[in-house]
Amino acid sequence: MSELSSASVASRGVWWLRPVWLATAFVLFVLAGALIFPVWTSPPPVAAAASAPQGLPWQVKPTAEGSEVFGLLVGQSGLPQAQARFGDNLHLALIQAIGTKDEEAPALEGFVERLEAGFVTGRLVLAFEVDDALRRKAAERSPKREVGSGGRVRQLSLAADDLDVRNAESLASQARLVGLSFTPAARLDEATLVARFGEPAERVTGAGGEVQLLYPATGVAIAVPGANQSASRVVIQYVAPGEFEARLRQPLAAASAAQ
């Protein structure tokens, strides 16, 4: 898929390729290169709450079965809702690591190159959960395959039949949004993030000085580069609070142990 450039894939890592996708993200985010971006500044005070910016990264609302952020319900929304939210800015592909066994199903993910979240801009990756058999069949029908991310992953575009939400058995109709990953364009420090998201329930420090701020009540984990990782950027991940342990905390512990 031409829209999913190699540079774009490299910027977001390949953690979606694993059953629990944070494990690779924890390691890769500190390795990703970055351009020089402006500092994330606060907007001027507003006179009335009604005119306050909406859809900001820290405006996360827990729900009975997930969490609401960026106009989507993580843990509940499907591909049709994501397409309605982002329109042509949402690009979809099946992603598979080079060297992966043929019998392993590729991951289904979406990518928004530039998301305007209130007064904050950044890149957004969406992870979808779909039956393995459906993803394998979709991979077989893919009309185009490309190698991206420095030769580390293979991108497979989706056939029209797999994107047909009118077909109850299609890939698109059965996909469930299970995770979001937002990389702000601005450089952020831990103090700024805590001021916005609140005090985390837990901090986990990696071997390279990177810090994970964990917010299980809202399903948020924020990876903050260490002082010696100036080329890296913050990565904010969102999952349903009820899936926080399996999708974020456990993979994080495994990645820390591996380091």
Rank of each mutant, 00 (worst) to 15 (best):
V130N: 02
E202H: 10
Q59P: 07
L73S: 06
S142L: 11
G179S: 13
L115P: 05
G209M: 13
L126H: 04
I95F: 07
S181A: 15
G148N: 07
A52G: 02
G13H: 03
E65K: 08
Q59R: 10
A172F: 03
V14I: 13
T218I: 10
A258F: 03
G87Y: 07
A257S: 08
P225F: 01
A133M: 15
P44M: 09
S256C: 01
L193W: 03
L108Y: 09
P80F: 02
G87N: 06
Q59T: 07
V194R: 15
Q155C: 07
L193A: 09
D88E: 12
A84Q: 15
P53L: 09
L79P: 02
G226F: 09
V125A: 14
L163E: 04
L126N: 02
V220Y: 06
V224L: 06
L35T: 12
A139W: 06
F29H: 12
T41R: 15
L17D: 11
S173K: 14
K101L: 13
L22R: 02
E109I: 03
L193M: 10
P62R: 04
V235G: 00
R123M: 14
R187S: 11
E113W: 08
R249A: 08
V39E: 15
A47T: 10
G110M: 06
P62K: 05
A221W: 01
T63D: 06
I98Y: 05
A168L: 15
A221M: 12
V178N: 09
G151K: 06
A253K: 11
L90I: 01
L156R: 09
G87S: 04
L79G: 02
L56M: 13
E190K: 15
S42G: 11
W40T: 05
